[in-house]
């Protein structure tokens, strides 16, 4: 695309854009697909010793091998990932990404590959329970742009008289550390990550669970411009059926019960309407 500059002068703006989009499709066809990840979100994706690791990373590599796709990972902060996918800066989003109605209007989800519930984390020495931790002037930590933030705003902050304030963080590790200092009294996070913090020896405990059965999935740009949604769906089913998925998950979260694939597919997601891409026998009627 750098060559574009040379053609800028003689060509009009309109023809430049036409040439530009022509270039774009040819380069995309040869280049590997760019997989956007948030590499500070263990156990889904993180960097250790300069290498990408995590469930989403290993599973994405297995799916790519299954589908015969070339991929490369690109790390971005979480709040930038969905805009990047919507703007087609990346082709696939692979992280612990929760399926929500709002997101499904801007990006297309694959079939769900995981299911989480949210937990209320409090400091180890706290005597709060799930009710007292989320009320009465409490400051509660969430990751900015996360599904937990959306859920709290929809169900607690904006729709009830419960007096709480949300503190939004760049990532959950900072939120949990801030709770240890005492700036916030609790953190709402998905159960998979919460278990990870407890296993790592952080001074936190679960005060209670918010049972929301949120599906997690991969995502591609809206309307699947690269036509890879079907391949990804088949890839997810293939690594689940072969047992590879279970091995990957157990490597990062030992002893966890792996939810069945495909899990609960919410009605509001248009790519879950029958027939689902690549898996025509599935989908909501």
């Amino acid at each position: 695309m750098k060559k574009l500059k040379a053609s800028l002068l003689p060509a009009t703006l309109l023809s430049t854009m036409v040439i530009g989009s022509g270039f774009a499709t040819t380069t995309y066809a040869q280049d590997p697909y760019t997989v956007g990840v948030e590499a500070s979100f263990p156990p889904w994706a993180y960097v250790e010793g300069g290498e990408f690791k995590g469930i989403a990373i290993d599973a994405m590599e297995a799916i790519a091998e299954e589908a015969g796709m070339q991929i490369e990972f690109r790390d971005m902060p979480f709040p930038s990932l969905i805009p990047a996918l919507a703007a087609e800066k990346i082709d696939i989003l692979a992280t612990g990404l929760t399926v929500t109605e709002e997101r499904s209007e801007n990006i297309d989800f694959t079939i769900p590959w995981w299911e989480t519930n949210d937990v209320v984390l409090v400091p180890e020495d706290s005597d709060h329970n799930v009710f007292t931790a989320v009320c009465c002037g409490a400051r509660i930590g969430v990751q900015g742009g996360s599904s937990q933030q959306a859920w709290m705003e929809e169900n607690v902050v904006n729709s009830s008289d419960i007096d709480v304030e949300l503190a939004k963080y760049d990532n959950y590790v900072t939120a949990v550390d801030d709770m240890a200092i005492g700036r916030i009294s609790s953190v709402i996070v998905d159960d998979t990550s919460a278990q990870e913090y407890i296993n790592a020896g952080k001074p936190v405990k679960m005060a209670g669970k918010i049972y929301i059965r949120a599906p997690l999935a991969l995502a591609v740009s809206k309307d699947d411009p690269q036509e890879i949604l079907g391949d990804l769906n088949q890839g997810i089913m293939a690594i689940y059926d072969s047992g590879e998925w279970g091995e990957i998950v157990n490597e990062y979260i030992p002893g966890v019960t792996v939810p069945a694939i495909p899990g609960h597919m919410p009605d509001f997601v248009d790519t879950y309407q029958k027939p689902v891409a690549g898996l025509p026998e599935l989908g909501n009627e």
Binding site: S40, P42, Y46, V47, N171, T174, D177, Y197, A200, G201
Partner: peptide
């Protein structure tokens, strides 16, 4: 630096 912080779960 974020990579190190998140993969070691802290040490900010």
């Amino acid at each position: 630096a974020h990579y190190i912080i998140t993969s070691t779960q802290g040490n900010i």
